[in-house]
Design a protein around this nucleic acid. Sequence first.
DNA 1: GAATGAATATTTGTAGGCAAACAATAGGGA
DNA 2: TCCCTATTGTTTGCCTACAAATATTCATTC
Lengths: 156, 156
Amino acid sequence: MTSRKPAPSRQGGNGRKPDDDDYVLDSQVGFILRQVSQRHAVIFDELIGEGVTPTQWAALSKLQEIGPTSQNLLGRLTSMDAATIKGVVLRLGKRQLVETNPDPGDARRLVVRLTEQGRRLTRKLTPRAAAISQVTMAPLTPEEQTRLLALLTKLR
Amino acid sequence: MTSRKPAPSRQGGNGRKPDDDDYVLDSQVGFILRQVSQRHAVIFDELIGEGVTPTQWAALSKLQEIGPTSQNLLGRLTSMDAATIKGVVLRLGKRQLVETNPDPGDARRLVVRLTEQGRRLTRKLTPRAAAISQVTMAPLTPEEQTRLLALLTKLR
DNA sequence: GAATGAATATTTGTAGGCAAACAATAGGGA
DNA sequence: TCCCTATTGTTTGCCTACAAATATTCATTC
């Protein structure tokens, strides 16, 4: 018999005193979130093709949605900070999927826009992106899917 | 009037033909997951202190749970691949929180164990780690929290 | 017009995160 | 014993991700 917690003393109403032993990594939100994100990343990679990453896709898709935007705003709309969006735009630029120009009306801004190539690719990938979301959620029933999205959105 | 979709023709039962316009980045699971993870990371950073990162905490906590383990197994148990866990163990080693030794029984293995310092720090941080999970979930009622964890676990 | 503070962009440094290629060892089976 | 395969660990390269420091420009206020 080696248990460190043979008979935990109850106290106060019906509760237990929280013990360090109660902390199990595998049931913490943060840890589970990371695992779900990893699974999603795998699915993304398998279905998207074209060497496009999730963040790159976010930038492309958002540009398709809203048209040319400043690099900084694009970052905010895709939840990337200034340094991160810079790298993403740089790599998309190297592949000729976006182009950047100084904003004539505001010398601070760098306007990012899809190239024709970028538009074509984005249109081509959109159905795959939709499939990625479906496959990711596939283990859940439609009702569960709706519930999950609602709950996650509250934590956003 | 510039709408590209003035009167979508219905067909087949009650449905609509899915259109590219239906894809909105902000309601995709992957994108929302990233945002929730980001919020969690901020909370983690604010509450944990000691310059410990989420992955480093995962390693510390898991070592506390199960005792000395091979580096590779530790990686699997914390959902990190071999290259990632190597870096994490390296940085924890620099801070004297873990130590590594060759496994006498298997020359391939590198056994990772908490140092006394590492054990002390882990014990100290465990209540904070628990608080991080609570604060992250705080926008949800207890019932919602349970439901969310159950749904996420199915996607793990 | 000048000062001030906010917004935008860039650079550097640190830390995950993974793929791919590689080396070494372990474990079995022919 | 020898060979084959799986496991473990390392290294390199590329891509996020963010903090912090810096420079430039804009907008506001005085």
